[in-house]
Structure formats: C-alpha cells, structure tokens
C-alpha cells in the first residue's frame, strides 16, 4: 500500500533543541496521532513537513513526492490547521475565505458553505472577534474545502470544549471513509486519539519513541500494580518506568509475559492508556538522565 507521508532520517538542529534523525510513515486512508510532551518536537516536525522551516538533512515525501521540490503540487492537496490563528485578524470570515479560495485549483465553495453552516460560524464576523473554538472551526472549514487528501493539524483540539472535540473527531473519521484521505495530527490530549487513531507516533525530546498501530501499542504495554516489597534492585530493572507511593507501586512494562512469570499472581496487570504510556516513558527517560 502507498504511503501518503514518509519521513526518513529527518534532522533539524537548533541551539537548545534538535530533531534527531526521525523516521516514520503514514499509509493512505488512515489517521495518525502524533503525541509527545510540549517541546518534544511535534510542531517542528509539522513545520518541516510544510516546508515552513528548512531541514538540515533527511527526506520528507508527501504523496510520494519530495516536499520541497514539489512544494506547490503537494500543498494543493494538503489541508492545514494550526494551533494558532495565522490569518488576517481584521478581516471577516468571508473576506478571508475570498483571499484563500483562489489559491486552490479544487476549491469547493459548496463544501465551505456547508461547514460554515454546520459549525455555526457567523460569516461576516471579524476573525479577531471569534472565540478560540470558532477560529479552529474556521481553520478546519478552510482545510476541508479544497479536496485535500492529507489533513495536517498541529494541536487542533487544545483549548476546545469536549463537545466540539468529539464533533471534530467524528468529522475526521467521516473524512477517511474516502480511502484516499489521511489525517496526521499532533496533540497532547491523548484521549482524543484513544478512540479513532489508527497509528500513534510518539516523539520525546526530538526522537521517535515508537510509531505503530494504536492497537499494537495498547496491547504490548501493560500497567503493573503491586506492593512495594516486590521491588528490589533486580526486579526494578524489569520495568520501563516505576512510580511509587507509600502504599505500593505502579509501573510500565512492554513485556507482560515476563512480568507474569516473575511476579505470578502477586501483581495486578492492567491495560494502560496512551497517556500512561506517554507519561511513564517521558518520566522514565528523564529519570535515567538524572536531570529532573
């Protein structure tokens, strides 16, 4: 099957942060969630895909084409939604639309009008007078009105109320009913992804921790809970990260079978959430570096 997005050995060096050789890919027709703590490199990666910043080395292919050499062609079929408003604030929704629309060959005004209506957006209101949620909805309406095949979103759900967040997830899912369309979105609200994402790519401190089908991830990791007396120098090594309190411990593992063998029935094994996996991994690594 063809990859709609393919990133290989991507590097970007900043003074205090660097993206280290990241690689992952997304198949056509699926939703990928891009998770990681703030400052992990999510926005940097998205900006590199959009050619808003220059890569130091590596390869980015969108629709099988190089994202810089074929920039125009690619962007014709990308719908983008960013975490902040980068449109002209003093213009109204309609005025802004009139500026954006002619840039796209396949602009579909009917679709745009439908979304504006569905989202309850006041067409003549100025962008600066819209709420954060409305700005997001407007962005989304623009992104979905030119028959884009790849929807790229940077933290679209942050600052949105749960009702609209669910509504947005439904929209995304209806989009991929058309098997040509993929969605790539970054977020730190992992519950949004727990439901609909097909793939999860987890970035931490500029490196990819994993990029796999969500079901695989949730099945391969387990949350182990037990009494503190079970922990000693050797058993500690069996876990990826451990959180202790005065009554017991909670720990993350990616090898449930081995844990079962060692601790038998003395521990409780639970299915973790994505948030568990993310939090434990981030903390675990920080602990290893001794810098926290």
């Amino acid at each position: 099957m063809s990859n709609i997005l393919e990133i290989r050995n991507l590097r970007k060096q900043y003074d205090k942060f660097s993206l280290k050789d990241i690689s992952f890919s997304l198949e056509r027709g699926y939703i990928m969630g891009f998770i990681g703590p703030n400052g992990a490199g999510k926005s940097t990666t998205i900006k590199l895909i959009m050619n808003l910043i220059k890569r130091d080395s590596g390869e980015i292919k969108v629709f099988g084409l190089d994202n810089i050499k074929n920039e125009k062609e690619i962007k014709e079929k990308i719908g983008f939604v960013y975490d902040e408003n980068y449109f002209y604030e003093h213009l109204s929704i309609l005025e802004m639309k009139r500026i954006i629309a002619p840039f796209y060959k396949h602009w579909d005004d009917g679709t745009f009008k439908k979304y504006i209506k569905d989202f309850n957006l006041p067409p003549s209101r100025k962008i600066k007078d819209l709420s954060k949620g409305m700005k997001m909805k407007f962005s989304l309406a623009l992104a979905l009105s030119h028959r884009a095949e790849l929807i790229i979103m940077d933290e679209p759900t942050s600052g949105l109320d749960p009702v609209f967040r669910i509504e947005m997830l439904e929209i995304l899912q209806s989009l991929i009913q058309d098997e040509r369309v993929s969605v790539f979105f970054s977020t730190h609200i992992t519950t949004d992804l727990e439901k609909i994402a097909d793939y999860i790519t987890f970035i931490n401190d500029g490196s990819i921790v994993f990029s796999r089908p969500k079901d695989d991830i949730l099945e391969s990791f387990a949350l182990i809970k037990g009494g503190k007396e079970l922990l000693d120098k050797d058993t500690r090594k069996e876990f990826l990260a451990i959180k202790e309190n005065s009554f017991g411990f909670e720990a993350l593992t990616d090898n449930t079978d081995r844990i079962k063998k060692i601790f038998k029935n003395e521990v409780i094994i639970e299915r973790p959430t994505l948030e568990d996996i993310m939090v434990y991994t981030v903390r675990g690594e920080i602990k290893c570096l001794d810098s926290y």
Binding site: M50, N51, L52, E71, K72, E73, I74, K75, E76, I78, F80, Y82, N85, Y86, F87, Y88, E89, I100, F103, Y104, K105
Partner: peptide, 12 residues
C-alpha cells in the same frame, strides 16, 4: 499575525 505561516502553507 505571522500570516507568513498561513501564506506559505498555501500552494505557493
């Protein structure tokens, strides 16, 4: 509003 970001995300 740093509209350059929006502009350069369009097919230009």
């Amino acid at each position: 509003n740093n509209c350059h970001i929006a502009l350069n995300s369009l097919p230009v």
